[in-house]
Design a protein around this nucleic acid. Structure first.
Length: 283
DNA sequence: AAACAAACCTGTGCGC
DNA sequence: TGCGCACAGGTTTGTT
């Protein structure tokens, strides 16, 4: 599912394929995708503008427009952004189509928002007043790929947390961008049980956790994210990621641990989420 | 503060 | 083959 690495990969795709191009026209199919405002708000806000930059905070993707406003895209569970040549047949569940003017290098194109489960959202908002339409942005914790995300910052975010580590890593207000897959992979690399009380970690352990967060997410970005068998995550050009080949615990319950090679991966439920870990490697 | 459930949706994979 | 059902996942909201 789209977590930080997948959203970052999509952002880079938009950055290289769409930034600078004129959005000539916008079509909105399913109104649910634009439920935060309206069909008209997205069409009126995006038509005739150019995306001048892209940003990402956690799983929230923003495309800054030359109008001064921005398009916020959240993929939630099944959202995808695809950039294709104009006229390409659209797959089912294509809810938003941004028509892109041709450039010197590229023919006329379309940027699609495709989302079978319709949890995802697209909204035009004013980045100088995010609290008006996208108040969640103001509640997000630090982004792990931001240079300011140090072990000290992580420590301060964990201080006083009495919940378990898994639930705490999933809390977007603590650290932004970690979802179920990477939470499990991060705990494993840090050799920490997901049951540990987050606020009880000592300094050297927090440094290990910090290195794991930055390492796992960084490597996943380098691998273009994780494309699972049962999901359809692909980047803006339709390419699959390959970090799933590096997963050591996620989705491997009952299989032999790839780290110690002798323990079967355990499965439990934490924070309402399936959680996989090695009870020997992770303490 | 935190743990939990439910809600939002659809496609998939399972057992029968 | 076909049906029903559990399940997956991100986030908000409501309840305990």
């Amino acid at each position: 599912m789209p977590e930080l690495p997948e959203v970052e990969t999509v952002r880079r795709g938009i950055d290289s394929l769409v930034v600078g191009r004129l959005i000539t026209r916008v079509e909105v199919g399913r109104e649910r995708t634009v439920r935060r405002t309206s069909r008209e708000a997205l069409i009126d806000g995006a038509s005739g503008t150019r995306i001048v930059a892209t940003r990402r905070h956690g799983k929230y993707l923003s495309c800054d427009l030359d109008s001064g406003e921005a398009i916020m895209i959240h993929l939630r569970m099944s959202g995808r952004v695809l950039v294709v040549d104009a006229g390409t047949p659209r797959p089912p569940h294509t809810h938003v189509v941004f028509h892109l003017e041709a450039t010197e290098e590229l023919p006329a194109g379309e940027m699609w928002f495709v989302d079978p489960r319709t949890f995802g959202e697209v909204v035009v908002y004013d980045p100088s007043r995010p609290s008006e339409l996208v108040p969640e942005l103001g509640r997000l914790g630090p982004d792990p790929l931001d240079g300011g995300f140090t072990a000290e910052v992580l420590g301060s975010r964990l201080r006083g947390k009495r919940g378990n580590l898994k639930a705490t890593l999933l809390d977007q207000a603590v650290v932004a961008g970690i979802g179920n897959i990477y939470a499990d992979e991060i705990c494993h690399r840090a050799r920490l049980s997901p049951h540990r009380v987050a606020g009880s970690l000592r300094r050297d352990t927090i440094e290990r956790l910090h290195a794991s967060i930055v390492g796992v997410l960084g490597e996943a970005v380098a691998a273009g994210g994780s494309t699972l068998e049962d999901t359809q995550y692909v980047d803006a050009e339709g390419n699959e990621g390959w970090f799933q080949l590096e997963h050591r615990v996620y989705g491997r319950a009952g299989e032999t641990c790839r780290t110690c090679r002798r323990t079967r991966i355990s499965r439990t439920t934490l924070a309402g989420r399936t959680t996989c870990y090695c009870r020997v490697c992770q303490r």
